[in-house]
């Protein structure tokens, strides 16, 4: 996980930011700030997966300048807040590994379908690899999107009958309608 270039908000250097505030009004502001910071950080670093157990190695949750870090339990509760708006989802039952959706799955889905429609790929089949790593999509936002997230986004489209996933062992592809 390399350094992520980000303009830290003022809260990041404010020690109380790393303690969950008991005052409900204050806490709401604090959690809101954390939510947007987490999404911003992941967007900048193109992070799709966060492991809470490794949080002390992630500068986002560990500000070594002021020697403060966010507790794992607090991180999980903030990520759970993000989950409510569809911006995160736990991968394992213990809620250690989280997928972060700085675009919600719906947003990813419409982005991909928009790209397909603009290129006239309707009624054609693309492999998942082409869709996420291919040369044609290099300029698209969803370039390098991990397959797990991609599949989840495509499943959203599938529900709307806009595509059909072909998930055999060999070739993983998708046909758009």
């Amino acid at each position: 996980m390399g350094e992520v270039e980000i303009d830290w908000p003022w809260q990041y250097n404010f020690p109380p930011f790393f303690t969950l505030q008991p005052n409900p009004e204050t806490r709401a502001k604090q959690v809101q700030a954390w939510k947007s910071l987490i999404l911003e950080y992941c967007r900048k670093g193109r992070l799709y997966l966060v492991d809470v157990r490794e949080s002390s190695h992630i500068p986002l949750f560990n500000n070594s300048n002021i020697n403060r870090k966010l507790e794992e339990s607090v991180i999980i509760s903030i990520l759970s807040e993000l989950q409510k708006t569809g911006h995160a989802a736990p991968v394992d039952k213990a809620k250690h590994r989280w997928e972060i959706y700085w675009h919600t799955l719906d947003e990813w889905a419409s982005m991909i379908y928009g790209y397909i429609s603009s290129r006239g790929f309707n009624n054609s089949v693309l492999t998942l690899y082409e869709l996420s790593q291919g040369e044609d999509v290099q300029t698209e936002e969803f370039y390098t999107i991990p397959q797990e997230v991609l599949i989840k986004a495509l499943q959203v489209l599938e529900k709307d009958r806009k595509c059909e996933l072909i998930l055999s062992d060999e070739d993983q592809g998708v046909k758009f309608f």
């Binding site: 790393f18 303690t19 505030q21 005052n23 020697n67």
Partner: peptide, 10 residues
Amino acid sequence: KYGKCCRDDS
């Protein structure tokens, strides 16, 4: 409690 300050528990 009155929201006049916030804590830093380290």
